[in-house]
């Protein structure tokens, strides 16, 4: 018989602000968890990196300094190499059902790996579609990528840009606006909703909507804390989590469209990449996946297989 469950409060570190498009989803998730466990599990969301910075979140959760948190896959690759496949551009299709299916299958492979490191993966969220926002001219064809200095996050995205003939520049998000304004870089890879909230369109008005996403986000908890939750409540948390991912796909797609429309109204020139555009880019990027495979090793093959079958 399960011991009488003690109420657990999970201080949950979120790097984005409570005005972000994911925030209402997260708030609904936390409320639902609390309701359905009758207050035995309480998720205390702390937005805007108030608790820990994004790059410290994983370690803070592992050590128990913070109960739970979320980061993009980039910040987890250092610990779980197999997640390297989840960082690159163009692997999250713009159809929510398929994106959710891939993410769920990847989770099934990587969650046990995370557990070995003291992390309980609650769910992963496929990111919204990417835009590439440029200062001077839009990127439409393959040739447009050539010679551009593009800000991106992470090593694998950098390699992909190189495969497209561009060069990758790492710039702190806080300095991105000025860097674009002053043409330190020509373009930035960004999420459409963040391009709106970060006012990126003001300085980089040529926005190409690439539709597909990159770098899914993981939502996780400290494993010891997780084990203090009764098995029934654990089950409830996982159910609520699965629902939140399933149900909010349309919300994210709608929000993205809204962001693009808003930016257009504010003077941005939005170009929506066609199926042919995306196919051409993907073909160019194929060799990078082999490079990732070389770096990750055979333990990553199952993840790669999932992506291959669905992309």
């Amino acid at each position: 018989a399960a011991s009488p469950a003690k109420a657990q409060t999970v201080d949950f570190a979120v790097w984005y602000s409570d005005r972000d498009m994911y925030a209402p989803i997260m708030k609904a998730w936390a409320a639902e968890v609390e309701k359905r466990t009758q207050g035995r599990v309480k998720i205390n969301l702390q937005f805007s990196g108030a608790l820990v910075a994004a790059k410290d979140t994983l370690n803070a959760v592992r050590s128990g300094a913070v109960g739970g948190g979320t980061t993009s896959a980039s910040f987890v690759i250092g610990l779980v190499r197999e997640l390297a496949y989840v960082e690159p551009l163009f692997w999250i299709p713009d159809k929510p059902e398929i994106a959710n299916k891939i993410v769920k299958e990847v989770d099934a492979i990587t969650s046990p790996l995370l557990e070995k490191h003291g992390i309980k993966n609650l769910f992963s969220y496929p990111s919204a579609g990417l835009v590439v926002a440029c200062v001077n001219a839009p990127i439409k064809t393959l040739a447009d990528w050539k010679g551009k200095k593009i800000r991106t996050a992470g090593r694998w995205q950098g390699l992909q840009l190189r495969a497209l003939g561009a060069s990758a520049v790492a710039i702190d998000p806080g300095e991105l606006y000025i860097a674009l304004q002053n043409k330190t870089v020509d373009c930035t890879m960004f999420l459409s909703n963040l391009a709106l909230s970060g006012k990126i369109y003001e300085v980089a008005p040529y926005i190409t909507y690439l539709r597909e996403g990159a770098n899914s986000s993981l939502y996780y908890m400290n494993l010891d804390l997780w084990k203090k939750i009764s098995p029934e409540d654990q089950k409830t948390v996982m159910e609520v989590s699965a629902d939140v991912v399933k149900n909010s796909g349309p919300h994210v797609v709608a929000e993205q469209e809204r962001a693009l429309g808003e930016m257009e109204k504010l003077g941005a020139k939005v170009y929506r990449a066609s199926d042919a555009d995306i196919a051409a880019i993907k073909k160019q990027l194929a060799p990078v996946w082999d490079e990732i495979a070389k770096a990750v090793g055979p333990t990553g093959d199952p993840v790669r297989e999932v992506l291959k079958q669905n992309m």
């Binding site: 410290d56 050590s63 300094a65 702190d172 300095e175």
Partner: peptide
């Protein structure tokens, strides 16, 4: 404060911060 009100395990944050602050490009 952390040892008394959060958890002794959370003290590891001290080491983690000492590296993450000194390895920040800004």
């Amino acid at each position: 404060g952390v040892a008394a009100f959060v958890s002794p395990g959370a003290l590891s944050q001290l080491a983690s911060l000492s590296f993450s602050i000194s390895s920040s490009f800004i």
